[in-house]
Amino acid sequence: MANTMARSFLQAVATEEVAPPLRVVQMEGLAVLKIIKHCKEFSPALVTGQLLGLDVGSVLEITNCFPFPTREEDDENEADGANYQLEMMRCLREVNVDNNTVGWYQSTLLGSYQTVELIETFMNYQENIRRCVCIIYDPSRSNQGVLALKALKLTESFMDLYRHNSFIGEKLREKKLSWVDIFEEIPIKVSNSALISAFMTELEPDSPVVQCDLDRLKLSTAPFMERNLEFLIECMDDLSSEQNKFQYYYRNLSRQQAQQQTWLQKRRTENIARKAAGEEPLPEEDPSNPIFKPIPEPSRLDSYLITNQVANYCNQINGAAGQSFSKLYLMKALQDN
């Protein structure tokens, strides 16, 4: 009996070695409110902060967080920032807050968060903690009564490629990695302690209309759309310049290959002539010749990220347009009455 139990325990340990994939991010209402407060107060400046919580099986719990001071570009400040972080963690531990970093949060403007910086930060965090997540909050959308909170992580296959820094066509094809596979969104759950739940139920106003209803029914979506379109156009320009880079690369590549061909042709006729004359043939490869130097292929990372952003803007525009359709029809119905 004991033997089987021991074995099953061993088995259990063995199976636990393989970490279950991260399925859900469970955020405490406190963390949600703190993030919103910090991001909103400093909007439109972009801010970041640290997430604290626990890693429980396939659920990552975020129970608290603290903001980072806005960074200034100074070397001195970097050490200062690290000090601040340590101090804050120490202080929070003293009042029994979970003392375990699980990622970071940042604010964004209209969802334009897909940047190289984000990926770099993520890789940095990933090195230190096995499981980390990035919470993105968009304060500009909260004015429309939307809670724009997202939990993101990078996919494993992307991280693999990033570590080897191999964003060339062949590798990407091999891995079947397309731009959709860079970021992975994880569903968010919100949990509150029973105490909070009791307080909020008590304090909830009786009025049937709350602020977010009023925000949602606002008819003016023009500024939001305009900015979205502006960003979309910018991204399109970036994308086309990336495309130009590729075209340039391919042109160079084909020119080089043509040069190589003519050189080889020449060498071969020369060799035939030498053979006829009874001399040793010359080698068909000449590494010292500049036309054999391979041209580096530009990385596709940027164009992937830009594509991601474009897709994001398109989604936002579609979503907002869909909403304003329904709002307009509602308005029409009201007017007809």
Binding site: G145, K189, S191, Q211
Partner: peptide
Amino acid sequence: EAERVGFDILKTTVVDKL
């Protein structure tokens, strides 16, 4: 502020989906 987030997600103990 709480109204903007929505009391629905703040007053219950677990909300499965935003």
